[in-house]
Amino acid sequence: MADTDKLHVSLVTPERELFAGEVDQVVAPGVEGEFGVLAHHAPFMTTLAEGDVVILDGTTKRVFQVRGGFADVNEDGMTILAEHANEYGETVQ
């Protein structure tokens, strides 16, 4: 990884890749509760509940609505495989 303090995250749906890049933090809705992921998170895998995936990078915050799918966190970063996903819109705080 180029930047060791950033988390590489990609959010993909079967139709296309919605988001890919280095970010600070990701909050995702797991079936057993919402969880946040930072860089160097321990390997972790969960199925996703219906809800919002929030991707935080600096002052930008992007929110995606996802339904069905998986999140996989390993040393290469985080992969969110969502069956359906839509972006709410980019908001700058």
Binding site: S10, V12, T13, P14, E15, R16, E17, M45, F70, D72, N74, T79, L81
Partner: peptide, 15 residues
């Protein structure tokens, strides 16, 4: 466009 998903899925299953 569908390829990344299929590829990641294969990687996750392989894992």
């Amino acid at each position: 466009n569908a390829r990344p998903y299929a590829k990641r899925m294969a990687a996750v299953i392989a894992n």
